[in-house]
Amino acid sequence: MNTKRNLYKDFEHPFAQFVRILGKGKNGARSLTYEEAYQAFEMILKNEVLDVQLGAFLMLLRVKEESVDELAGFVQATRDQLKFRAIDVDLDWSSYAGKRKHYPWFILSALTLAKHGHRIVMHGASGHTINRLYTEQVLEYLGYTICQNENEVASELNQHNFAYIPLEAISPTLSDLIALRNIMGLRSPIHTLSRLINPFNAKATLQAIFHPAYRSSHQQTAAKLGYVNSAVIKGEGGEFERNPDAKTLICGIRDGELYELELPKLTADRSAIEEELNLDTFKEIWLGDSQHTYGEVAVIETMAIALYTMNVADKFTQAQTLAQEYWQNHVIEFNFGLKKDTIRCLF
């Protein structure tokens, strides 16, 4: 590292300009333009940046908070470096937060949608924040393949209408950057931009945020990237999952038009936090062997948002009705159909 630094004793490193723009002081600093953000992140992805510059850059952005132009530039630079072939995908579902207080009900939403013919690709990262249950761990427990390349994604979609691919398989560089969470002590813009990459150009996208202020920036960035159907919510635990205990504001794009839709809270009192996230219990609910009042509402309502985002229903109330039918059909199939024993064989 010192050798690399010494190369720049007599002239400025080309990345220094971007650190300077962000860190020039209260009166001199500004956000990056779209073009500057694109160029800066392209250099990061190509490993043309020193570690000390990268740390300063990410933390300056974290303090300032990323602008729409910055996010769009970062995401587009990432998308332009991805070499995935075209795959027919209905819904891109990002999953980067992990769960701590409640089960990952959104996973059952996605799997139920897939069982009813909707082609879904989910992507995420695991382990970047301690003491959380991550999607990859849950899917492996339920017997699903963790895809490592686009061919496996295509195969899983053709077999199950659902595929999960970790960020590490999409972009090892982004995966390394998101893992800095436990070194920096803070999340960085990587947690935000990873949710927006839509690696297989799905027709619709879902992103969840934890801090409400990011709803609008995600929505506007998705629009700037040309996504015509998208939804952003403050999801339970930071995952794309409707929390029945709170109002849910959807900041969406529908046929290219931005909209907001606020959904009311569905419970009178705050639901109890799970004492333990026992995956045996979670699997029993998926197989129809057990029931969970809070969980089933979360599954159905999350499905409804996804269906509305995919333009499967013209009105949200229609999406809710269809989601309810999907879940009831799923339970009936597992309880009385021939597929139940077949599904059990997967475990």
Rank of each mutant, 00 (worst) to 15 (best):
W286F: 14
I197M: 11
E275G: 14
I300S: 12
I197D: 13
E325F: 00
Q137I: 12
L32Y: 00
A114K: 11
L45E: 02
N158Q: 08
V19M: 01
A179W: 01
G288Q: 09
S194W: 00
R20S: 15
V68C: 05
V19T: 14
L193H: 07
I233L: 09
L322Q: 15
V89I: 15
S188K: 09
L338W: 07
E241D: 04
D280F: 02
Y96K: 07
H330T: 08
A154W: 05
E241P: 00
A110G: 13
N198S: 10
T33S: 15
N149Y: 06
F84Y: 12
I250R: 09
N311T: 03
D289V: 02
E65T: 13
R181T: 13
A272L: 08
E275C: 01
E274N: 12
A202H: 03
R119C: 06
G127P: 00
L258F: 02
A313I: 01
I107W: 02
V297L: 09
D314Q: 11
I273C: 05
V121W: 05
P264C: 06
P189I: 06
K101N: 14
S290K: 15
E152L: 10
L54H: 02
I130N: 04
Q81K: 11
Q76V: 03
L180H: 03
K315C: 00
R30K: 13
S31W: 04
K4I: 09
I183M: 05
G238S: 11
Y103K: 08
Q207I: 09
R215C: 12
V63F: 08
I253T: 14
I209S: 07
F15K: 11
A169H: 10
I343N: 01
D51F: 02
A208F: 04
P14G: 00
G237W: 04
I250S: 11
W286G: 03
I120A: 07
K224S: 10
S171N: 07
E12K: 15
I197R: 01
E152S: 06
H102S: 11
Y227H: 10
E168L: 10
G55N: 14
I233N: 07
D341T: 06
Y38T: 11
R5K: 15
M303A: 08
R344V: 12
I190V: 15
M122I: 11
I87V: 15
I285S: 03
I44N: 09
Q318T: 13
S290W: 11
R195V: 06
H128F: 00
L307W: 02
T317W: 01
E257L: 08
G73V: 03
V89M: 02
E236Q: 12
N201F: 01
G226D: 07
E48D: 14
E150D: 15
S230F: 15
P172I: 05
N131R: 13
Q137K: 13
V52Y: 00
T135D: 08
P166D: 05
L174T: 09
K224D: 06
Y103G: 06
I250Y: 07
N329F: 01
V89H: 04
L133H: 10
I343W: 11
